[in-house]
Design a protein around this nucleic acid. Structure first.
Length: 745
DNA sequence: AGCACGCCGACT
DNA sequence: GTCGGCGTGCTC
């Protein structure tokens, strides 16, 4: 029953997980001391027809709305799950990304807690004998042999048994256990998993002594540790093999010595195991993990342990960013430049940017690691907002790889491979060393064309060609799930021969097997590693030197160490040179450097060959002759001249619908609105079709808003968003706003 | 997001 | 005459 608010002094401001920007007001439930209701608790509330779990953001004394408020049903937590700083961060993020608060706050919670499950760590039950059980002879168990055996185990071992330990001994332990408990032969005691928070861990922090750091590493460690109790953004710039991880480890050590927690974010799940391994070897403490391959309960477990301070290190991906920390001390975000840190749907946040804001609010340092920092990071270093820590040397005696452009114009190619590359491969293989080839296109061939009539296999739902996959004998669309059997004859003219056009990893793999019959080829792409454990298996095979040629896509570029690889070939670098997105050159350069970084570890210098038809391209020559940093300077200058980010700020409105006109009509209306609301210079580009206009049967258009001032862009968006929600044309499309868009496609 | 209300086509 | 299509609007 609604109650006039005047009878209650407190009003609860609650975030509900629905796509609405405002908070909802409720009266406190009966029987709750208003002083014990704190922001950061979960609240069950009546909402519309049913009930929902909401998140208490604030309590206020007055209410500006005159409507009669409903009363909350129950407070679900006895303590706040999120601190006030964590709530501030979420509120800030909702504002900055112009995304509904309820949905933003929901991303901070694991699924179980969102649904209102109790925020308690699993309790481990241990069982031990009672006095009665100790003296029981067993006469009462004639018809219960299972109980008798279990009781005897307790009597003979005379110790406590956990359920897990009992499960190992008995196929069906539950029933006899229950019976013995009922007969009061044994009793249970419970303990919460994880470290006890009130006892300072007695063990040493280190399990293994730190490695000796070289001068650059020492400097980096000292610089970060000199500001452990205040906000600072450090950029740890080191090429692959420069010993970044050791720097992280030694900084973390000092944070742990101060009894503070560390949050470490990585771009990809694949990278967590190897880092976890290093951490486990070094530190005498549990490492909490959080990424999407874990089950909900595993993630909730990690979340609660960090929230309660029972664990000190959290290793996770983007989604782990909002995990509450009871005693935060440091944030590390590795491979800072990586695009995976930007969420690409729903709440489109940049984990890097939000992590920086989080560190600022918490007054702790954040370390961004990368061998190839993003251009905006470089810009922030120049502006003295971030501090650069360089690790110029390769740790140990490893030499940096040498990059060469291989001009393939007018050169005969064997399935994309030029003679000089093949020769180098032969030499490398002869020495018993490994070759790594990179081609960012999976499948056999990207196009299937009819030699008779020119028919091309197109996707029916997208504006794209179907890709030939030879091993499965299918044509597949890489943008929707569409899949057809590989036709035997041309569907256009019923005759002619169908020719696969262009190169994919499958095709190159076939060619390599024919060209190097003595050598073992391993192909690493999304298709070959789909089976669970396949990637790990192949990586191990490579590690054990049971592969000679490794051929793969993107996934090769990230993190994995291939110590015996001394030759890297990038088969087709040109397709990356002509990107429609202004981030293209930056992404390509990062990719080249990352792939090149797989070569020449240990004491064997590596060679990198880039096959190109544009050997004079300024991007490539700058990168090859002067390295990433000089390239980045150039690219940044180009951005400045074109007034592109980071010299301006962007927001992209995307709209899509089955009807081709609807998105354009909506965006035209949006454009007019933006025009009329803008008080400061604002450039509006579009509406333009997205690079792939039709995808999975849906037409996609976009409108780009760009301003030289971040504040004025956001001031405009604050007015524009509610106006867009009013637009009738917006009801006929699915639209979304992307702040600081990463790919304009 | 859900869920109800509401106004127009093919069915017992 | 109704059952149900999904367009529109609201949720403290």
């Amino acid at each position: 029953m609604p109650i006039p608010f005047t009878q209650h002094p407190y009003i609860l401001k609650i975030a509900i997980t629905i796509p609405v920007h405002r908070l909802f007001d409720y009266l406190p439930p009966d029987g709750f001391d208003p002083d014990k209701i704190k922001p950061g608790m979960r609240v069950e509330v009546p909402f519309g027809k049913g009930k929902k779990i909401g998140f208490l953001m604030a309590t206020v004394k007055t209410c500006d709305s005159s409507i009669k408020l409903k009363q909350a049903v129950a407070i679900l937590d006895s303590d706040s799950l999120l601190s006030s700083k964590e709530l501030t961060l979420l509120t800030w993020a909702a504002g900055y990304y112009h995304h509904p608060v309820g949905e933003v706050v929901a991303t901070a919670f694991p699924a179980g807690l969102r649904q209102g499950k109790p925020a308690a760590l699993p309790v481990h039950q241990h069982y031990h004998l009672t006095a009665e059980g100790r003296t029981e002879i067993g006469d009462n168990f004639k018809r219960a042999p299972a109980q008798q055996v279990m009781l005897r185990l307790f009597q003979e071992s005379d110790r406590t048994w956990s359920e897990a330990a009992l499960a190992e001994r008995f196929k069906r332990y539950r029933t006899p256990l229950k019976q013995l408990l009922a007969k009061k032969m044994i009793q249970a005691e419970s303990s919460v998993s994880g470290f006890s928070s009130d006892s300072i861990p007695a063990q040493a922090i280190l399990r293994q002594p730190a490695l000796s750091a070289n001068p650059a590493q020492q400097q980096a460690i000292a610089d970060v540790c000199a500001s452990l109790n205040r906000f600072n953004v450090f950029v740890l710039a080191g090429v692959t093999g420069s010993g970044k991880t050791e720097v992280y480890l030694q900084i973390i050590q000092q944070v742990l010595e101060r009894d503070r927690q560390v949050l470490i974010l990585l771009p990809e799940i694949n990278l967590t195991p190897q880092l976890e391994q290093r951490f486990k070897q070094r530190f005498n403490t549990e490492i909490a993990l959080s990424h999407s391959k874990l089950s909900d309960s595993e993630r909730q477990f990690a979340w609660l342990k960090m929230q309660q301070g029972r664990c000190t290190i959290l290793l996770g991906t983007r989604s782990a960013l909002f995990t509450p920390l009871s005693k935060p001390g440091l944030i590390i975000l590795d491979e800072e430049h990586d695009g995976s840190f930007k969420q690409q749907e729903g709440f489109r946040f940049s984990a890097r940017d939000v992590a920086i804001m989080r560190a600022k609010l918490l007054e702790i340092p954040i370390v961004l690691g990368s061998a190839t920092p993003a251009l905006e990071t470089l810009y922030n270093i120049k502006k003295k907002r971030f501090r650069l820590l360089e690790l110029p040397e390769r740790a140990g005696s490893a030499l940096p790889p040498v990059l060469h452009l291989l001009d393939i114009r007018n050169k005969p190619l064997q399935e994309g491979l030029a003679q000089p590359l093949l020769e180098q491969m032969t030499q490398t293989l002869a020495k018993g060393e490994q070759v790594l080839l990179f081609l960012n296109r999976r499948g056999f061939a990207p196009v299937l064309i009819c030699h008779g009539c020119g028919w091309v296999a197109r996707c029916r739902r997208c504006e794209t060609n179907l890709v030939v996959h030879s091993s499965e004998q299918v044509l597949r669309c890489h943008h929707c799930s569409q899949e057809n059997a590989l036709p035997k004859a041309c569907p256009g003219c019923q005759t002619g021969n169908l020719i696969p056009l262009g190169l994919g990893t499958e095709r190159v793999e076939q060619a390599l097997k024919a060209l190097f019959p003595e050598n073992r080829v391993i192909r690493l792409d999304r298709d070959s590693t789909q089976r669970k454990g396949a990637l790990e298996y192949y990586l191990n095979e490579i590690q054990q030197n049971r592969a000679d040629i490794i051929l793969g896509t993107q996934m090769l570029a990230k993190g994995h160490h291939f110590p015996n690889v001394t030759l890297v070939g990038l088969i087709d670098v040109d397709s990356g040179l002509f990107s429609t997105d202004f981030h293209g050159p930056e992404k390509l350069a990062q990719l080249i450097v990352q792939v090149a970084g797989r070569a020449g570890r240990a004491d064997k210098p590596g060679t990198v060959l880039l096959q190109t038809r544009r050997p004079e391209h300024p991007l490539l020559t700058a990168l090859i002759r002067h390295g990433y940093w000089r390239f980045a300077e150039m690219a940044l200058l180009e951005r400045k001249q074109a007034a592109l980010p980071p010299f301006s700020y962007q927001a992209l409105i995307r709209a899509q619908a089955i009807n081709k006109q609807a998105p354009q009509l909506f965006l035209q209306a949006a454009s007019r609105l933006a025009q009329s609301l803008a008080k400061q210079p604002l450039s509006i580009l579009g509406p333009v079709p997205a690079p792939m206009v039709k995808r999975a049967g849906v037409f996609r258009f976009q409108l780009l808003l760009q301003s030289p001032k971040r504040a004025s862009l956001h001031a405009l968006l604050k007015q524009l968003m509610p106006a867009l929600e009013e637009l009738k044309a917006g009801k006929k499309v699915r639209w979304s706003l992307d702040i600081d868009p990463m790919d304009l496609s």
